[in-house]
Structures are given as C-alpha cells and as structure tokens.
C-alpha cells in the first residue's frame, strides 16, 4: 500500500510538469492557433538556465523559481516578435517547420555549449529528504512539486476565469474571428500569451531541475508525451491540459512501477482509447477535433 502511494506521488509530481507545460501549450494554441513543437525545448531551457544561473551567479532554486519563468517569458516574447508572428498568416505546415526547427536549434546550441553529459543541480534547501506522515515516508521534493504545480494551475485558472484578460483569452480561444468583430483587438494579446505559455514551460523546467537529469535532450521525450497530454485533454482546453497532465503522469508512474517495459506505451494506449471514445479529447469541443 505504501509503495502504491509513493508511485501515486511520483506520478502526480511528474504530472505537475506535464500539466504546467501543457497549460502553456493550450493557451498558445487557443489564442494563436499555433502548435508549439518547441515547447519541450523551452522546458529544457528552463532547467538549463536554472543550472547555469546556479553555477555562474549562485542563484538558488527559490529565486530561480521566480526569475527563470520571467526570463523565459521574455524569451517567448522575442520568439513571437521575431518568428512566430509571421506564422499566423501562413499554412499550418510552416507552423510545424518553424517551431520544430527552433527546437532543434535550441537543443544543439545547448549541446554545443554544455555538452551532453548533463548539468548538476542540488535539491534545494528545505526540500531534501523524506516527509514522514504516520507510517508513510514520502520524498519531500515530490510533495512540493505536486503542491506547487497544483497551486500554479489554480492561479492560472483564476486568472482565466476571474479577470477581464482571462475573459478575452477565453473568448479568443473559442472564436477568434467573432471576438475581433466584437471590437476586441485580439492581436494585442498574442505576444503576451505566447510569452506566458513559454514562461509556464520554463517554470516546469525549473521544477524539473533538481529532480531530473538536466540535458539538452530532456525536452525531446517530454514534448512527445506533452502532445499525448493535450490530445487526451482536448487541444486548446485549459482544464483538459491540467487534468490530462496529472492523468498521464500517473499512468506513466504506475507503468514504470508495475510494467516498466510498457510504461511509455501505456500513455499512448490511453490516448488512443480517449480518441476512440471522444475524438476531441476529454474536455475538447467537437469542432476542435
């Protein structure tokens, strides 16, 4: 039983990374109609930047948790202004070519500079060791990752449902053309939303830094699972991204625990089953399918 709870926690912690990154992917797709294949690379960059800042200027985990997402937001703004904005008028094929190309460039730049062996990152002070709850003992860091990513998801949810900006983002996600015709300058929100999505991927990267191997390739496998997450949740659905993120984290963890050779396949079997029953994903609307 206690092993099961540990696997569950492991799944929820991994799910936290998926949920945060998928949330970013979902708002970007919603408002820009762009599927960002560079999202895994941005997650990787979040982790690498944290490690480099720790090494070079001694910036620790806690400040990095705030500063790195802001840097990644700015990086997203730059990407959008320089490259992504030109996609909005082009065939979707260019969307794939550009964002996939950006991912390759980022990965190779990191490889060139920092090699492939991985960067070190210590578990942050206060989050080391085990948390003892009665007879249970759980890795403190995993508990933190789960709680923190849930908190961020809830905050993003509040931002989307309780503010005027969120209302405009929801409206633009649902029906960009009609929203323009109602006098809303949707284009004005495109750049900040893209930056915000990249910032969330970067945040997932910071959280992953003490927990996963920090290598240039860490985003490759991640982005593939991320797409399974958004397909399961429903592309463009914010709630779907969060729920499916944690769900996929759990499936992966149980898979690794009980049938390790099938753990990756299990995610895609889940995806296939969801598509068979609900082609638009768990929370997707039919027309987005």
């Amino acid at each position: 039983m206690s092993a099961f709870i540990q696997y569950t926690l492991q799944g929820l912690a991994a799910g936290g990374f998926y949920a945060l990154a998928a949330l970013g992917l979902a708002v970007i797709f919603g408002v820009l109609g762009v599927v960002n294949f560079a999202h895994g690379a941005c997650y990787m960059l979040g982790a690498v930047v944290s490690a480099v800042l720790l090494d070079v200027v001694g910036l620790h985990f806690w400040p990095a948790l705030v500063i790195v997402p802001i840097l990644m937001f700015l990086f997203g703004v730059l990407l959008e202004r320089v490259f992504v904005q030109w996609l909005l008028r082009l065939d979707v094929l260019y969307n794939f070519l550009l964002t996939f190309g950006i991912a390759l460039v980022l990965v190779d730049l990191v490889k060139r500079r920092y090699g492939v062996s991985g960067l070190p990152y210590e578990q942050p002070a206060g989050l080391r060791g085990q948390l003892h709850l009665g007879s249970l003992s759980l890795p403190t860091y995993q508990v933190f990752v789960f709680a923190f990513s849930m908190l961020v998801c809830v905050l993003v949810w509040l931002l989307l449902t309780r503010t005027r900006i969120g209302m405009i983002v929801r409206a633009s996600t649902e029906e960009p053309e009609r929203t323009r015709a109602l006098g809303i300058n949707v284009n004005r929100w495109v750049t900040p939303v893209f930056g915000f999505g990249i910032g969330l991927a970067g945040l997932a990267g910071v959280l992953a830094a003490p927990f996963r191997a920090i290598t240039a390739d860490m985003g490759g496998n991640f982005v593939i699972i991320l797409f399974a997450v958004v397909v399961i949740g429903g592309l463009g659905s914010v709630l779907g991204a969060v729920v499916a993120g944690f769900l996929v984290g759990l499936v992966e963890a149980y898979g690794q625990a009980y049938a390790s050779s099938f753990s990756q396949i299990a995610i895609f079997v889940l995806m296939a089953l969801v598509i068979l029953v609900r082609p638009a994903g768990l929370f997707g609307r039919q027309e987005t399918a």
Binding site: M167, R170, A171, E174, R285
Partner: peptide, 12 residues
C-alpha cells in the same frame, strides 16, 4: 461563447 457566462458574454 460557450466558455463565458451570460454576464461575461454581455460585457466582453
């Protein structure tokens, strides 16, 4: 809008 309440639809 399906994802907006009646009041939000009105004040968007």
């Amino acid at each position: 809008y399906a994802s907006l309440t009646v009041e939000e639809n009105l004040t968007l």
